[in-house]
């Protein structure tokens, strides 16, 4: 192999897995309960299987030379992310999945498309080697933002319906009544991204940058990619959470400035 990095064989993966087995052993030894150990095990196995599969798939994806299949893969990725985002929230309203899909798709595609075609100047613009990993990173962060913001907004509507309706009863428009909740939800959705940017390079070396450097890229070049991707993540998260919260707002506050709190219901558990 002529690449500037070390290829990992199965033995090396096995040794890495030992790190987790060690933790499992400790948790069994201390009788910390099966729950945590089992989740750790399931998560580890899932991670390994999913990644190995993706490795195979990406080999053929990166060979694609027409835009349509690449876009199709992007849509599937966005759909999966939007479902995962909703599934982490504790409440539901009719249309929540569509709202999440629309916001995820819109925000991720606009920002990734702009970055590919306008900033990084990839040729062709859909080059899967760039498009798919960038979209994936953007979606992973957007997912967290959307689920946090949605959860906070729905919780706010449910818990503070009294205050909201008092405002409405005194002549507030639905926007005036909902605005504090909306800005609170957006703030919550942006917290992980802002925190990450705050400490980036100081506390944490981001995964993509680490990966590029492991693959032999000069740190100064890797850093530039990281800056672009962080702006992409921040922009997508801001755009996507704003969209999903505004759509939720239109669902839960109707045109007659009434709060439709009955459209909101709690679900048993989240995963």
């Amino acid at each position: 192999m002529s690449a500037g990095y070390i290829n990992l064989d199965n033995w090396q993966l096995g040794f890495a897995a030992l790190l987790i087995v060690l933790n499992l052993a400790i948790s069994v030894w201390l009788r910390l309960g099966l729950g945590l150990g089992r989740s750790l095990l399931v998560a580890s196995v899932r991670m390994v299987v999913q990644l190995l599969l993706v490795g195979f798939i990406l080999d053929s994806v990166f060979a694609l030379t027409t835009p349509l299949p690449v876009i199709g893969i992007g849509v599937v990725m966005a759909a999966l992310a939007s479902v995962a985002a909703v599934r982490r929230t504790r409440r539901r309203f009719p249309g929540i999945y569509w709202n999440s899909l629309l916001s995820t798709l819109g925000a991720a595609f606009v920002v990734t498309g702009a970055a590919l075609a306008g900033i990084i100047n990839v040729h062709p613009w859909f080059a899967p080697q760039y498009a798919i990993p960038l979209l994936g990173m953007v979606l992973g962060n957007l997912l967290t933002g959307i689920s946090l913001a949605l959860d906070r907004f729905m919780q706010g509507v449910a818990r503070e319906s009294g205050v909201i309706e008092s405002d409405l009863a005194l002549g507030a428009t639905r926007w005036e009544a909902a605005r504090p909740l909306i800005s609170e939800a957006l703030r919550t959705g942006m917290i992980p991204t802002i925190n990450a940017m705050m400490v980036m390079g100081v506390v944490s070396l981001p995964g993509m940058m680490t990966g590029q450097m492991l693959a032999g890229a000069a740190p100064a070049a890797a850093v530039r990619y990281q800056i672009v991707i962080m702006f992409m993540i921040a922009a997508t998260t801001a755009l996507g959470t704003l969209a999903v919260i505004l759509l939720a707002y239109r669902r839960l506050f109707n045109r007659r400035h009434q709060l439709c709190v009955t459209r909101l219901h709690t679900i048993g558990r989240t995963d």
Partner: peptide, 17 residues
Amino acid sequence: MPAYRARVVYVPQRPAL
């Protein structure tokens, strides 16, 4: 609606402030 509610005001039993 806001104009109407500014003139017809409802005070709930357990007000939320």
